[in-house]
Amino acid sequence: MTEREIRARPRNRVIVNKTVAPYLFLAPFMLLFIAFLIVPLIYAFDISLYKKAMVGGVKFVGTDNYVKAFADPKFWEGVGVLFKFAFLQIPVMIGTALVFALILDSGVVWAKAFFRVSFFIPYAVPAVIATLIWSYLYGPAYGPIGQTARFLGFEAPDFVSAKWILGSIANIAQWEYMGYNMIIYFAALQAIPTDLEEASVVDGASAFAFATRIKLPMIVPTIIVTVVFSIIGSLQLFTEPFLIQNMARSIINSNYTPNYYAYTLTFVGQQPNYAAAISFLLGGVIAVVSYAFMLLANRRIDR
């Protein structure tokens, strides 16, 4: 057969060329993205500009809801709680995750794979169920922590009291997400080429110095990303207080966190317009804090 014959053969024409292809591949995701992200956001923004009047249905009020939200102490109290929570929880979680990742990566310990997997297991447990389990553990009468304390002859603190509640919630987050962060750091550490390690041995560095002075700085970009995600997650706190509220009605009120507040406003208070404004304002706070952190972190790196 000659090439002339192939040329004469009817070919299956390439209909989707490389100009059209990316849009085709993106279409399913982007259409859903628009339908379930962009459109609801626009809708939420739209309704946040209206208000349900006592008489005569809804009316346009412009930025009134935002002005009101901006001056709403219930919103800012919630933001305050979140800030306290984030400052308490994120450093501890990231710190332990880093230390454990470095220990596992250095290979000093026994049963590395066992620790790696078992620390990650809580991530598979739904936050709802983790909160349920911990709220049982916190129980003053039947909780084993209280029982143990009594057995040892002292009284365990009331974990759901005003003084301890934030720590109790932070503990749940620590239990759930430490392993997730640890695994990410571990993978980043493992990706560092081994010739670097050999070079530092030649330089006479100790394993500890190598881990802290060479390996740790190399995964700083990964750490920054995980911290940003933790900030975003923390500021959206909802499930844990929403469920623990059952045990601590007097302490966790319906505006304990901004997300909780927006939820209550919508489904209890019948004020979806105002709730939308609260959500947007929270989105703004999240964006500002995340951005500020990244700016700060990057400036540190540049120096």
Partner: peptide, 24 residues
Amino acid sequence: LMFALVLGAVMIPQTALVIPMFLM
């Protein structure tokens, strides 16, 4: 632009999305 949009989406609070979605 599209990638930036997808990246930015993680910052949106759940309530800002789910509540309007529910209303719609």
